[in-house]
Each structure stands twice: as C-alpha cells, then as structure tokens.
C-alpha cells in the first residue's frame, strides 16, 4: 500500500514537472548549470572507474582464456562488448546514482527544509518544473555522453592492462576490438544511459522534494535516493535486456 502511495506521489511529481515553464530562458539557464554539475562534475570519477573496469575485465578474461584454444584476440572482443552492452552504462550510472543522486536529494531536501521551495511556490513558480525538469533533462543529455566516454576509457584501460601485463599482444587486442562489431549494441548502451539517467535524477529529486523533518530525515532521504535509484537501475537494466535482445 505504501509502495503504491509512493509511486502515485512520484508520478504526480513527474506530471507537475511538465507544466508550461514560467520563462524558458530561466529553465534553459538552470538546465545548462545542471549539465555542468552532472556532466563535467562527474567526468573524473567516471573516467577513473571506467579505466579500472576495463583493466579488470581484460586481465580476468586473459586469465580465463589461458591454456584454452580460444584465440587471444577474443580478449579485446569481450572487453569491447561487455563494456558497451553492460559495464559502461550500468556501472557508470550506479556510480552516478551515488554521486549525483545523493547530491540532488540533499540539495532539494535542504531547500525544502529551509523553506526555499515554499518561497518559490508563493512567488508563483512551478517548483516541480523548475527544480526537477532541468535536472532530468540535463541527465538525459549528459549521462549518455558520460557513458560513451566511459566505454572508450574502459577499452583503453583493457588495452593497457592486457598489453602492459603481457597477457595479450597489442595487435591481438586491437583485432578483437574490431572483430564482429555490432552497432546495435551501441544503441542498446545509449537506451540504457537515457533510461538510467532519467531514473537516477527523478528518483533523487522525488526523495529530496518530499523530505520532512530535520537533518536525520535529510540524510535518510539522501541514502534512500541512492538505494532506490540503484535498485531501479538494475531492474530497468534487466527489462531493457529482455526487450532489446
């Protein structure tokens, strides 16, 4: 029952978000600010994590394939596909849910507690639209870009780890990277990035928007934003995999 109530409230917030903006230029300015916060602000952590994900994938598969008859260029092939299909969008967005999601929930929750949201409402501002829509739009645009960068860095990480440790020759890895390339997988990756971006921002905004009480409740809302976003991201990952494969 509570779950249904929460879901209804979440849908209501999303509905209110799409009302006509008071002034497009103000919403656009806010969207650009959010793009910078979510995109540029997350670039280093996403890059670092992607580098190691690629490296670990490469080393693990090289170890698995040792002594088998499977050609070494398969390491590059596996790193590429696992990165594009699963690791880059999912791991990146789980990390973003932790970094961006908790930040959004704390920011909006803090505004609620300091009566800043009430102040906006009294001015006549559609608070759901002004506070939530720019964040969701920014994420939908920026998260796919981050995921593309993450996939690229992962492959570089895989190459460096495989080659520097001597587990695979550079030519074999590069052959694998171009072997049986399927552009549809990139489409899948982008679909996941858009959906995950929407989930992590909208859920975090929702948790922050309806926060009540004091600092303990704000901390709890921030944690819940991350937990719920993560659960919904992996669930959506499964649904997208079922639909698109």
């Amino acid at each position: 029952m509570t779950l249904l109530y929460e879901f209804g409230k979440y849908l209501k917030l999303l509905g209110a978000m799409f009302r006509k903006p008071e002034k497009f230029s103000m919403y656009w300015k806010e969207t650009l600010r959010q793009m910078n916060d979510i995109g540029v602000g997350s670039l280093s952590i996403i890059g670092l994590i992607a580098l190691f994900i690629g490296a670990v994938t490469s080393v693990q598969f090289a170890y698995q394939l040792q002594g088998s008859f499977i050609p070494a260029y398969y390491i590059g092939y596996i790193v590429r596909d696992s990165t594009i299909i699963e690791l880059a969008p999912t791991i990146s967005c789980l990390v973003l849910a932790g970094k961006v999601g908790s930040n959004i929930a704390a920011e909006i929750g803090g505004m609620r507690q300091k009566e800043q949201i009430d102040a906006l409402e009294i001015m006549g501002v559609n608070t759901a639209g002004f506070l939530v829509l720019p964040k969701v739009l920014a994420a939908i645009v920026v998260v796919p870009m981050l995921v593309i960068i993450s996939a690229g860095i992962s492959m570089i990480g895989g190459y460096l780890a495989g080659v520097l440790s001597g587990l695979v020759k550079p030519t074999d890895f590069l052959t694998g990277l171009t072997y049986f390339y399927e552009p549809y997988y990139v489409f899948m990756m982008l679909v996941k990035a858009v959906v995950f971006g929407f989930i992590l921002t909208s859920v975090s905004c929702y948790k922050g928007f309806y926060v009540t009480g004091g600092s303990i409740e704000l901390g709890r809302a921030s944690t819940q934003a991350v937990v719920y976003s993560n659960i919904l991201i992996v669930f959506a990952d499964y649904v997208i995999a079922l639909i698109l494969t």
């Binding site: 008071e22 103000m26 009566e115 009430d118 102040a119 001015m123």
Partner: peptide
Amino acid sequence: GMLFQGSALFDSMTVEENIRFPLDMF
C-alpha cells in the same frame, strides 16, 4: 510577497540575484 522565518534566501545566489529572481522569472 512573503518573508519567511529563516528568510529562505537561495544560498547559491548573491543578495542581488536573490532579490532579482522574481523579476527574472516573471
């Protein structure tokens, strides 16, 4: 117009930006 107990000023904006906000928006 409303004055809130805790003032409810936007922390990320300067005094000028806070006051100008309704004018920018409407």
